[in-house]
Design a protein around this nucleic acid. Structure first.
Lengths: 155, 155
DNA sequence: CCATTTATTTCGTTCGGCCGAACTAAGTAA
DNA sequence: TTACTTAGTTCGGCCGAACGAAATAAATGG
C-alpha cells in the first residue's frame, strides 16, 4: 500500500473517532438536558425502532424487570415522551408508543445540527455526496453489527 | 436544487443518523461491559482530551462535587482505567492520568470494529477516501460545536 | 363457570452515586 | 512562626433506579 494511502487511512480513522466521540457527547448532552437516564434513552430507541411495544416486550428487549419498566414508563410519560395506549387485542396489556410532540426540548438542537450539516453538504458535488452516503450507510451497518456482538446485559 | 440532489441529501441525513445511533449504541455497550457509569465515561473522555488533570480540575470540568470525584476516581482505579500520581508542583494535589493497559476489556471490540472499517475503505479509491475524510473531520467539528452549545449541567 | 396462566402494577427493599460538612495535609503570606 | 487558604478525602445521609414478591385484572382452557 502506498504511503499516501496509509496517510489517508490514518486520517479516516482519526476523523471517524472524532465524529463518533462528538456524536456520543451530543447525544448525552441532549439526554441530560431532558433529564433522561441511560435506560430511558435505550427504551426510547427500542420503541422507535421496533414500533409500538407492550410493556413486557420492552422489558425483554431492554433487559429490565417488568416492575422496572413500569417505573421507566412513568418517567417517560411524565416527560411527555411516550404514551401507554390500550392494546386492542388484549386488555391486560399495554402498548407503548412515542409522543413526537414531546421531543420539543431536544428538537431545536437536532434541527440546528441538521442545518449546519446541510451547509457542509454544499461543499461537495453530487458524486462526492453519493460516495459519502454509501460510506455512512455501510459504516453504520458495520458498527451496528459490532455492537450486537458485544455481550449485552441479558446474556 | 435538482431532485437527484435532494434524494442524496436525504440519504446522507438518514445514513448519518444511522451511524450516530450505531456509534452511541456501540459505546454504551462497551461501557456497560466494563461496568462504567455515564460519569465514568465522561471523566475518561475528559482525562484523555485535556491531559493529566488534577482531581479539582476534573471536578470543575465534569460538574461534579469534589467529594464525588474522589469516589469516581476510586472506581476508575479499581478497574485499572486511571491512576492517581503525585503532582510534582503541589504535594496537596493529585494528577489523574489514563492507564491504557487497563483498556484490554474494551480493546478487542474496538480492534474488531477497526478491522471491518478498514475493509470498507478498500472499496473506495484514494480520491474518494480523501473526500470522506474531509467530511468526517468537518462533520465532527460541527457536531462538537453543536454539543457545546447545549446548556450543560453547570450552567 | 372455575382454575390457571399471563400482563402489568404496587409495595417494600436494596444498592450506588452524589452531595454538603467536617477533617487532614500542604501551600502561602504576614 | 502563626493565621489563612487551598486540595483532597472521609463520613453520613439522601435520592432515584432497579429488583423480587405479592396483588390485581384479564385471558384461556377444561
Amino acid at each position: 500500500m502506498s504511503t499516501e494511502r496509509e496517510a489517508l487511512v490514518r486520517e479516516l480513522d482519526s476523523g471517524g473517532r472524532a465524529l463518533a466521540t462528538a456524536a456520543v457527547l451530543f447525544h448525552s448532552a441532549v439526554a441530560a438536558l431532558s433529564g433522561l437516564t441511560a435506560s430511558d434513552q435505550r427504551a426510547l430507541d427500542l420503541i422507535e425502532r421496533f414500533g409500538p411495544l407492550t410493556a413486557g416486550e420492552l422489558a425483554e428487549r431492554s433487559g429490565l424487570a417488568p416492575a422496572s419498566v413500569t417505573g421507566l414508563l412513568a418517567r417517560l410519560e411524565r416527560k411527555g415522551l411516550a404514551r401507554r395506549v390500550p392494546n386492542p387485542n388484549d386488555r391486560r396489556s399495554v402498548l407503548v408508543e412515542l409522543v413526537y410532540e414531546g421531543m420539543t426540548v431536544m428538537g431545536p438542537h437536532f434541527l440546528d445540527l441538521g442545518r449546519q450539516l446541510h451547509q457542509l453538504y454544499e461543499s461537495f458535488d453530487d458524486a462526492q455526496l453519493a460516495t459519502i452516503a454509501r460510506f455512512l450507510r455501510e459504516a453504520a451497518q458495520i458498527q451496528q453489527d459490532a455492537a450486537s456482538r458485544i455481550p449485552g446485559p441479558e446474556s
